[in-house]
Design a protein around this nucleic acid. Structure first.
Lengths: 261, 261
DNA sequence: CAGTGGTCTAGACCACACC
DNA sequence: GTGTGGTCTAGACCACTGT
């Protein structure tokens, strides 16, 4: 099955802007993505070969290839040598990246609120120093936040950050969020290693998160690095499992699935 | 800081094989990766620019670029326009992809065993039919497996798969694992959407996983699609949280982190 | 300013799938 | 066979960085 008249129109209607600061391949990729998610390029349909497409759009084949590769990396299309390029089914697509709690709640129409419970400098304990790859006693800021929906708390988030990276206060943290503040300070986040687990809540934790006794909590601990390889933060987050779970979407699950096969 | 004599030697020692079926860019990327992880190209060091590298290796600049892009995508190096290309710190690297339980245990020196508890055809319930995007009553195979270390059980895995995709039996499943069997049947896994949560174990579950009362379990439910967009499996997995947590490694955590910032 | 990576081109040949 | 995507080349110009 080919692209069909509607999908054909999507491609024919594209005029790339060679004066735009947006790269050509990205203009093309975005246009095609809108055509796919908007339903004008139907699921299962087969694209023309990339050389014809390139000619029709007035760009070179490598540029066309890069646009298609971008869509393939994001899971919207599947390319097979000798066969062609096909649009995947809509239920497979969705947003592919791991989603964030904030986005999830926003999508559900909730506006998550954040309250800073603690924001204080301290000397790094041995445990924290190990996690942050700094010496014990190094000054760090410990910040504890409670994130809630309009109805009930969802997560208690504890972060440890070397004091030298912290040039903001609790109210700025509440207003802007942690990562934007770090970026504004010139910190380029690059990689993270995290551990996802679960355990039963302590009495105090259950109370803070308004959960019952023996409630299960989702736990995430994370160490984040900047692009110079320096450790930026160590975080311990607790989620009320009865009210929250993480949706994640993966492409090529053979190599990327959490857990077992 | 430049590459240094040892890193220089790593590059000079590379002779690409133009008759190999392995792409040139991949040969180069792998060679550099070994140099980096092996410590011959030290963390923090700056590469020459990609044009000089291409000349030295006797390949074109686009091919050299592709090799570098591959390493950048995997988080081993950081590229900045106007600056150059730098090797990240070793603690940042590690394997970047989400790891699998099996690999994790193998790495820890454990050889996980899998026992098939159930393997039976049934008619899809409304719930299962919805998850598999098939009609209620469609024949599916329900398979329940218990995965254990030499010491104790870790996970109970339940999978539902349309019968038409199942041409193997319980013993093959125990021997080969699910995904290899599906691939052998010509199923090309393409994407998955999964939900990670937690809850307290029921009495029966606690007993099967040799956990105490009120133990917290990590739960993962997953729906997996092939590249035609058909639903391949619906899985419900339970992990004994006291004995297992998932290590995941991310690049560019700003867009990819589970949870909140 | 000089040097870096980012983008783009117009060709070529190859490996693979289907007929 | 024919047609597809995958790889590779040798140039070119641009945007950004630091001096």
């Amino acid at each position: 099955m080919s692209l069909g008249p509607s999908g054909d129109a999507v491609i024919s209607s594209l005029r790339v802007d060679r004066n735009s600061p947006i790269p050509l391949y990205f203009q093309v990729a975005q246009h095609l993505e809108r055509g796919i998610t908007g339903g004008h390029i139907p699921p299962g349909s087969l694209f023309e070969n990339e050389i014809q497409l390139a000619v029709r759009l007035g760009i070179s084949r490598p540029t066309m290839r890069r646009a298609m590769q971008h869509l393939a990396d994001r899971g919207l299309i599947v390319r097979r040598r000798g066969i062609g390029t096909r649009v995947v089914q809509p239920k497979v697509r969705r947003s592919i990246e791991l989603t964030s709690l904030y986005d999830d709640l926003r999508q559900a129409g909730e506006v998550p609120r954040t309250r800073v419970l603690e924001f204080a400098e301290m000397a790094a304990s041995r445990e924290i120093a190990k996690r942050l790859a700094c010496g014990a006693g190094t000054p760090v800021v410990r910040m504890v936040r409670l994130r809630s929906t309009s109805v009930s708390p969802i997560a208690k988030m504890t972060n440890f950050i070397p004091s030298e990276l912290v040039d903001f206060d609790a109210s700025a943290l509440e207003a802007d969020g942690l990562y934007p503040l770090l970026r504004a300070r010139g910190v380029h986040l690059h990689a993270a290693t995290q551990s996802v687990g679960a355990r039963t809540a302590t009495g105090a934790e259950a109370e803070e998160l308004e959960e019952g006794r023996h409630a299960a909590l989702l736990t995430i601990t994370r160490t984040t690095f900047d692009d110079r390889g320096d450790t930026v933060e160590y975080a311990q987050h607790l989620y009320a499992a009865s009210r929250y779970s993480f949706e994640t979407h993966l492409v090529s699950p053979v190599s990327g699935t959490i857990g077992t096969y």
